[in-house]
Simulated scan of single mutants.
Amino acid sequence: MNDTIPHLTAGAAALLAEPKAGRIRAMRSRRWVLYPRAKQALYRLDGLLEHPRGTRMPSIAVYGDSGMGKTMIMKRFRDQHPPSFDKSTGALTTPVLAMEMVSRPGERRFYGELLTVLGAPQSPRADITQMEQAALRIMDAIGVQVLVIDEVHNILAGTYREQRIVLNTLRFLSNRLQISLGCFGVNDAREAIGGDVQLARRFEQFTLSRWAANEEFETLVASILRNTPLHRPSVLTPKSLRRILQITDGITANIFHMINNLAIEAVEDGSERITDSAIDTWAPDFDVEAIYA
Rank of each mutant, 00 (worst) to 15 (best):
I193L: 15
A293L: 06
Q80G: 02
V144M: 04
L167H: 03
C183D: 04
M131I: 00
F206E: 07
I255F: 06
R171V: 08
G182W: 08
R31S: 11
R210H: 10
V221F: 02
P121W: 09
Q130I: 12
R56W: 09
M68F: 07
R243E: 12
I259G: 00
L118W: 02
L34G: 05
A61I: 15
L230H: 02
M74P: 00
R137T: 12
I224Q: 00
D285G: 06
Y35H: 14
R226G: 05
W32D: 09
P124C: 00
A10V: 13
K20I: 11
S271A: 15
H153N: 10
P82W: 06
R109H: 04
P95T: 08
C183R: 00
F217P: 02
E113S: 13
T237A: 13
G22T: 01
L45M: 12
R53G: 08
F184H: 02
A61M: 15
R31L: 06
L45W: 08
R104Y: 11
Q130C: 03
Y160W: 12
K87P: 00
T159V: 03
T116G: 15
E132A: 12
V146S: 02
P233E: 10
Q246Y: 10
G64H: 08
A91E: 14
E218A: 12
I149E: 06
A126C: 05
R56T: 09
R108H: 10
R164P: 03
S84E: 13
I193C: 02
